[in-house]
């Protein structure tokens, strides 16, 4: 049987080749045919999920709810010591130094990354800002969000913290971090669909052994991941409950 693997479209572009190497490693480890399908945006990936075209996914926490509770996916693993945190940034030249100073009419630049947008929107609440009294532009990449701030076409930008940290030094020098989330309990995770869930134990065993051999270690480094950590069903249900509390 041929399986299809996909990665949440918010992955760091720096690691695109890493995901192809990972897929090759996974095929060899399991002795199975696995095709890596990458989508340009969340909407096209969700369509594929809706049509049951995906068997294995490195999923965004926002999408985990539908995958686990509606589509019968089971959790396998997540990167160890890694959490999805979000950052709201402004131009380095901005006079704003605190969320409370932000005013209605705020211009937001963001991507279509659903959990980052949700967490950043929550971080604007203390300033009484929401979709009713702000305007938002959606950009294809975080680099374009940064550009909007630098050219002052937006007042604040929403970023995935890891991506913000990986912006070039030159770009970051022109930005200022206003607030960073401190959540810890929300993270991407690898999920197996109903067609491949019988291999969960085998996949997990191979993932956990990756740092112990040179090839596996090299693949992990290509993903910017130190190690994998097993994720149980209840861990995922807890994260989904947590995400549900954040959706207004």
């Amino acid at each position: 049987m041929k399986y299809t693997f996909t990665v949440s479209p918010d992955f760091n572009p720096e690691f695109i080749s890493g995901w192809f190497f990972f897929n090759t490693w996974l095929q060899k480890s399991l002795n199975e045919q696995i095709h890596l399908e990458l989508y340009n945006d969340f909407e096209s990936q969700r369509q594929a999920i809706a049509h049951d075209e995906i068997d294995l996914i490195y999923a965004n926490p926002f999408d985990a709810s539908n995958l686990v509770r509606e589509k019968g996916f089971v959790p396998i693993a997540c990167p160890d010591n890694a959490a999805d945190e979000a950052i709201i940034a402004v131009s380095a030249e901005s006079a704003i130094s605190n969320v409370d100073e932000l005013q209605p009419g705020l211009r937001i630049s963001k991507t279509d990354d659903p959990d980052v947008n949700m967490v950043c929107s929550l971080m604007l609440e203390p300033a009484n800002l929401d979709a009713q009294n702000t305007t938002a532009s959606t950009r294809a990449t975080y680099v374009l969000v940064a550009k909007d701030l630098i050219t002052q076409d937006a007042d604040v930008g929403f970023f995935l913290a890891d991506t913000y940290t990986n912006l070039s030094k030159m770009t970051r020098s022109k930005l200022k971090q206003l607030v960073r989330s401190d959540i810890h309990d929300i993270h991407h995770l690898l999920l197996a669909g109903p067609q491949i869930s019988h291999k969960r134990g085998e996949i997990l065993e191979r993932l956990l052994a990756m740092p112990a051999n040179e090839k596996g270690l090299g693949v992990l480094q290509g993903l910017g991941i130190e190690n994998w950590k097993a994720v149980e069903q209840e861990d995922t249900e807890f994260m989904i409950d947590l995400m549900e509390t954040l959706k207004n």
């Binding site: 929550l122 609440e125 203390p126 300033a127 947590l242 509390t245 954040l246």
Partner: peptide, 12 residues
């Protein structure tokens, strides 16, 4: 039950 609390605005 899961409870999640966050900072509210001064106005609220």
């Amino acid at each position: 039950y899961t409870s999640v609390r966050r900072r509210p605005s001064k106005m609220k």
